Simulated scan of single mutants.
Amino acid sequence: MKIVCVHQSAELYGSDRSFLAAVEAIVQHAPTPAEVEVILPEHGPLAARISEAGGSVHFESEGYLRRSLLRRPLSFASGLLAATRRLLHRFRGADVIYVNTLVCASALLACALSTRRARRILHVREIPGRKELAFFRVLIRLSGVEVVYNSQATRLAIGLPGTVVYNGVPGPAACTQELGGDDGVRLLMIGRINAWKGQKFLLQALLRSQRRIRLRIVGSAIDAQVHLVEELHHIARSLPDGVTCEFFGFCEDPSEHYRWCHYVVVPSTSPEPFGRVAIEGFSYGKPVIAAAHGGLTEIVEHGQDGFLFEPASQVALAQTIEGLPHALSPGHLALGRRAFDAFSSRFSVESYAERISRLVFASSGPTK
Score class of each variant (00 low, 15 high):
Ile39Ala: 03
Glu252Asp: 12
Leu88Tyr: 07
Glu42Gly: 14
Glu246Asp: 06
Gln210Ile: 06
Ile190Arg: 00
Ser75Asp: 15
Leu80Ser: 07
Pro366Leu: 00
Leu142His: 14
Arg259Cys: 04
Ala236Asn: 02
Leu202Asn: 07
Ile121Lys: 05
Leu122Val: 09
Gln152Cys: 01
Gly365His: 01
Ala107Met: 04
Ile213Gly: 02
Leu202Gln: 03
Ile321Leu: 09
Arg259Tyr: 00
Ala236Asp: 02
Arg338Ala: 12
Arg66Gly: 08
Glu132Ala: 11
Ser283Phe: 00
Val124His: 08
Gly219Leu: 05
Ser56Gln: 13
Ile217Ser: 06
Gln177Ala: 15
Ala94Trp: 00
Val349Asn: 00
Ile299Pro: 06
Glu230Pro: 04
Gly281Ile: 01
Val57Glu: 11
Lys131Val: 12
Tyr149Pro: 07
Arg92Thr: 14
Pro33Gly: 07
Asp223Glu: 15
Gly14Ser: 10
Phe347Thr: 05
Gly242His: 03
Ile97Cys: 01
Phe91Cys: 06
Gly303His: 07
Pro41Met: 04
Ala236Ser: 14
Arg120Pro: 10
Ser78Tyr: 15
Asp253Gly: 05
His293Trp: 12
Arg120Cys: 11
Ala34Asn: 15
Ala110Met: 05
Arg141Gln: 05
Ala278Arg: 06
Ser209Gly: 01
Arg85Phe: 14
Glu252Ser: 15
Leu202Ser: 03
Gly306Asn: 13
Gly162Asp: 04
Leu359Cys: 10
Gly79Asn: 01
Pro287Gln: 09
Asp253Leu: 11
Phe59Glu: 13
Glu132Arg: 15
Glu354Met: 07
Gln152Leu: 12
Ala312Gln: 08
His29Lys: 06
Tyr149Thr: 05
Ala10Asn: 11
Lys2Gly: 07
Pro41Glu: 08
Val4Cys: 13
Gly242Ser: 05
Ile39Thr: 02
Asn167Val: 03
Glu322His: 12
Gly285Gln: 05
Phe307Val: 04
Leu109Phe: 11
Leu179Trp: 10
Ile321Arg: 01
Ala334Pro: 10
Arg130Cys: 07
Asp95Leu: 10
Arg358Gly: 02
Asn167Glu: 09
Ala77Arg: 03
Gly54His: 10
Leu335Arg: 06
Leu335Tyr: 04
Ser345Ile: 05
Glu272His: 13
Pro254Leu: 04
Ala174Glu: 12
Ala94Pro: 00
His293Asp: 02
Arg72Ile: 09
Ser364Gly: 15
Gly55Ile: 03
Arg208Asn: 10
Ala53Lys: 05
Asn167Leu: 09
Phe247Pro: 11
Leu156Lys: 15
Gly181Pro: 05
Val300Asp: 04
Phe250Met: 12
Leu202Thr: 01
Ser114Cys: 12
Ser75Met: 13
Val266Glu: 02
Leu74Phe: 15
Ala110Asp: 03
Leu102Pro: 02
Glu60Pro: 13
Gln319Trp: 12
Pro254Asp: 03
Ile235Gln: 04
Glu60Ala: 03
Val315Ser: 15
Phe307Asn: 11
Ser51Arg: 15
Glu301Arg: 13
Leu70Glu: 03
Gln225Phe: 14
Met1Arg: 14
Ser363Asn: 09
Val148Ala: 05
Glu11Gly: 09
Leu102Phe: 10
Leu113Ser: 08
Leu122Trp: 11
Arg117Gly: 09
Arg141Met: 00
Leu65Ser: 13
Ala173Gln: 09
Ala77Tyr: 12
Leu359Met: 08
Arg346Asp: 10
Arg338His: 06
Tyr166Trp: 12
